[in-house]
């Protein structure tokens, strides 16, 4: 019995094994790239983080001391705090703008592709370029915003937007929303368009109002899209650097030092590459945990709840 059983199974197994090998061959180029440009650098960064590794001069093994130092590093903790604050504010702001925009451009109406293009345009500007542009817009003397407010008679004196934390932070948030919202809108738009029209039709016939259709039909069906947009937005915000470096050089009195900015400072201003590497590993761990939490919260991968 067993003999005949194995006889009938073996060709199938063979085929499966062969197709397994073939699959490996197919993904080999991608795997090679990931190993070369992600896995190996991460391993090397991990190795560096266990050393006192100055930019110039010899390295010295110090075990986990860099990680212990991190726990007592007040500047790192305040950088984390600021990054969290920035991430929450900017993510909410981006979604608050991008969702209505997505709904607006989803419907077929006149000039809809013109709207889509215009809203998407800032996305193709580089972040550094956009930051420089906004530095000029916010300039107190030769810029646009301050002098315009003054010309309209709304203020007596052109305000220096980048001089205080609140106004500088607001300027950066507006810049980032202007720059990023178009991209989030496109992602959300694809989700909206994937909802079959007959479902909405059926709900309407059943007497569901506009808000009810959005809450009980659109939102649940867009869960995966929202998860994607959310993870991209949160990850991007946690890794924010250019805008703070260019627009405020770390902000009035160092109050806008994001985590990446701090890693940059430690590595290339103070030349502590080892400590910078340890901070990068910590940031990687934080990002992985946050992404898992977000995927779990939005229950991606499961079918209907």
């Amino acid at each position: 019995m067993t003999g005949s059983g194995s006889k009938t199974l073996s060709p199938q197994r063979k085929r499966r094994r062969r197709s397994g090998w073939r699959g490996l061959v197919y993904i080999a180029p991608a795997m090679a790239l990931v190993i070369l440009f992600f896995v190996m650098p991460v391993i090397f960064t991990g190795w560096m983080s266990l050393h006192n590794w100055p930019l110039m001069g010899g390295t010295r093994w110090i075990g986990l001391k860099n990680y212990v130092r991190m726990l007592h590093d007040a500047r790192f903790l305040s950088a984390l705090q600021f990054t969290a604050y920035y991430t929450i504010v900017v993510t909410i702001a981006i979604f608050a703008v991008a969702f209505p925009l997505a709904i607006f451009v989803e419907k077929q109406r006149r000039f809809v592709s013109a709207y889509r293009t215009i809203i998407f345009l800032p996305v193709v500007v580089g972040l550094a370029t956009a930051s420089l542009l906004w530095v000029w817009l916010a300039n107190v003397d030769s810029g646009f915003v301050g002098p315009a407010l003054k010309a309209l008679g709304l203020v007596d004196k052109s305000p220096n937007l980048l001089a205080t934390f609140d106004s500088a932070f607001l300027t950066i948030i507006i810049m980032v929303v202007w720059k990023i919202a178009g991209f989030t809108m496109i992602i959300l738009l694809t989700g909206l368009q994937a909802i079959p029209a007959d479902l909405t039709e059926a709900a309407r016939i059943d007497g569901a109002g506009r808000w009810q259709r959005f809450r009980y039909l659109t939102l649940p069906l867009m869960r995966k899209t929202i998860a994607l947009a959310l993870i991209i937005s949160v990850t991007g915000s946690i890794l924010a650097f250019d805008q703070f470096y260019i627009m405020t050089s770390g902000g009035p009195q160092n109050r806008m030092i994001s985590v990446v900015y701090y890693i940059f400072n430690q590595s290339f201003v103070s030349f502590n590459l080892g400590y910078g590497a340890a901070l990068s590993i910590a940031l990687l761990a934080i990002l992985v945990v946050l992404s898992i939490v977000q995927l779990w919260l939005l229950r991606v991968g499961e079918e209907r709840p």
Binding site: N139, V140, D141, K157, S158, P159, N160, L162, A163, A168, T248, S249, P252
Partner: peptide, 9 residues
């Protein structure tokens, strides 16, 4: 002092 001084790096 001009207001720009506060943010001149």
């Amino acid at each position: 002092v001009p207001a720009g001084a506060a943010s001149d790096n």
